[in-house]
Design a binder for these strands. Structure first.
Lengths: 133, 133
DNA sequence: CTAATTGCAAAAGCTTTGCAGCGCA
DNA sequence: TGCGCTGCAAAGCTTTTGCAATTAG
């Protein structure tokens, strides 16, 4: 199954790639920094080099398996592209990332791009929020 | 005038701060990296240290004078908060940044945050586009 | 067998920080 | 005068890269 995703993506099936893909698929959390992945794997005895984690994630991104986000804070986070498209809400107090979908947003944005003479390729919509008192 | 903005923001009026604020206000371009500002100032004979540029921008951000964006690519860009609020469209071929406003987007997002039990603090909406053929 | 991938360590950005001296209020 | 700001250089982080050894197909 993992094997298949990798092959379909045109990627050679190697141990580090399988380990990383499995971690991304099996975790309840959906957003990981490279350092997180490195730490989690090594803590569970799966030895993978940090440079490899970065290279694997870059490959996954090119292959369309994951998306890279630059939220706030120094480091990027990666997320498996699975399930439908969604956007993100980041809680400024807890750092928690909530996913949501808005059909309205999806509909509006294409019109905006086109009214400026452009073709929409992708978008990033992030809400920064705080628990309601 | 510049003087006033700084005082209103509760910032001590110093030469580097004035120079940077003037650059941000007078340029037709609206988006600058710290390195850009450093280079532009020094090229026009205004000597300012790079560390100072970073510190001034951080102060400006806290004071609400500028917004910091983490688009793609290694470095952050800053933009003067002036005129109304707007969002951004980044052309993937030319790197050009276009600003736009969408009342619909503005209206929708607050509802989204609240329906999840959060209060909206800020948002980031970026469209990645390509010239229409 | 060949080309791609890995690991390590070193290097490369971008940004922040320590400290001594200078400048604004 | 006193506290905050500046500059420089050094340190810190995240991410990338060179290279020799290893592995997948």
């Amino acid at each position: 199954m993992d094997d298949k995703s990798l092959k379909q993506a045109g990627l050679k099936v190697t141990l580090p790639r399988l380990k990383i893909l499995r971690l991304l698929e099996e975790s309840t959390e959906h957003h990981f920094g490279a350092e997180d992945i490195y730490r989690l794997l090594n803590e569970s005895g799966e030895e993978v080099g940090l440079a490899t984690v970065y290279r694997v994630l870059a490959h996954f991104e090119h292959a369309g398996l994951v998306t890279r986000h630059n939220f706030e804070g120094g480091s990027a986070v990666y997320e498996l592209k699975a399930g439908g498209h969604h956007d993100h809400m980041v809680c400024l107090e807890t750092g928690q990332v909530i996913e949501f979908v808005s059909a309205d947003i999806e509909n509006i944005q294409r019109g905006i791009a086109e009214s400026h003479g452009y073709e929409l390729v992708d978008h990033r919509f992030v809400l920064f929020v705080r628990p309601k008192k």
